[in-house]
């Protein structure tokens, strides 16, 4: 990344009303767990104390958490920042392997080495926005919704959250979203909550019903992101996607987290940790 790009620009640009989402210098801290909550069978919520990270974090950015002092598992795990409150930052995660299993057993008072905030977050811009979440992909989108409203970019009713999952347990943060006052629509594949089917059907309806282009922001499984990006492109709407990959450092150094850059003749790769995790859909999905 260009060095002079890697600066925070936290104040909205007065002419465009857009806040650029670039990352500044990350911090490496020992963060104490101040609250833990089991949300569903395999989804957990942790609150960590860390003023340096909480105050600098932008929606869409992530932290690397070293889950163990031992060397197995060796590498820290990336988690998108779910929300910040004062000097606390929260993560919301699903148990998927060795690292998240350890994290799920965490007790209040334990500390973890955390590096962050990392990566390029969502573009903040005024006006109607469609946030499309697949399962745990809601984690960073909640922070975005909250930030768009609290910073005055959007009225609550300008933010529509479309949440999809396999079943009702995959639909997260319903109460919190209702409290924010955003419009919430739900789909589940098994029909146990909201409309049966895939979230992309709601995306299509919303885009078709809109009188002017809406910004689309999505986080979830890759196949879903690709489908959402396709629908947005067909409707002429700008679309940002937040990607997840395995990574060793989170700092742009190991080059292990890359994804193929879209629409290039030869191979070219983008680092999810630095050029992302939030990308314009056209950067990572071929047109």
């Amino acid at each position: 990344m260009d060095k002079n790009q890697s600066q925070f620009q936290t104040d909205p640009n007065p002419t465009s009303g857009i806040t650029e989402p670039f990352s500044g210098s990350p911090r490496h801290i020992q963060a104490k767990v101040v609250a833990t909550r089991r949300i569903t069978n395999d989804v957990y919520h942790l609150s960590l104390m860390g003023e340096e990270i909480a105050t600098a974090a932008r929606p869409g950015q992530f932290v690397m958490v070293r889950v163990s002092q031992a060397v197995d598992p060796l590498l820290p795990r990336p988690f998108s920042i779910h929300r910040v409150m004062g000097d606390r930052f929260d993560i919301l995660f699903r148990v998927v392997g060795q690292g998240t299993r350890i994290l799920a057993r965490t007790a209040v008072g334990e500390t973890f080495a955390v590096t962050g905030p990392l990566g390029r977050g969502f573009l903040l811009a005024p006006g109607r926005v469609l946030l499309v979440a697949g399962g745990i992909g809601l984690a960073p989108l909640f922070f975005l919704a909250q930030d768009l409203i609290s910073r005055g970019f959007c009225r609550p009713d300008e933010v529509t959250v479309l949440a999809g999952g396999r079943g009702r347990a995959d639909i997260l943060c319903r109460e919190e979203l209702t409290e924010l006052g955003v419009r919430l629509q739900i789909t589940t594949e098994d029909g146990s909550l909201g409309r049966p089917g895939l979230v992309t059907s709601l995306v299509q309806e919303q885009l078709e019903a809109a009188s002017e282009p809406i910004r689309v922001v999505s986080c979830g499984p890759k196949a879903m992101l690709q489908a959402v990006a396709g629908l947005a492109a067909a409707a002429g709407c700008p679309c940002q996607v937040s990607l997840e990959t395995g990574m060793a450092c989170g700092l742009g150094v190991c080059l292990g987290c890359v994804v193929r850059k879209a629409d290039t003749p030869g191979p070219a790769y983008l680092r999810v940790c630095r050029e992302g995790p939030v990308f314009d859909a056209g950067e990572v999905f071929n047109s």
Binding site: V71, L74, L75, G246, A248, L255, G256, G266, Y269
Partner: peptide
């Protein structure tokens, strides 16, 4: 440009890379 992903994998007390 480097190799296509996946480029890294965690192993016991180590990692494999093919950047």
């Amino acid at each position: 440009p480097g190799n296509p992903p996946p480029r890294i994998v965690e192993t016991a007390a180590g990692m494999l890379n093919a950047i």
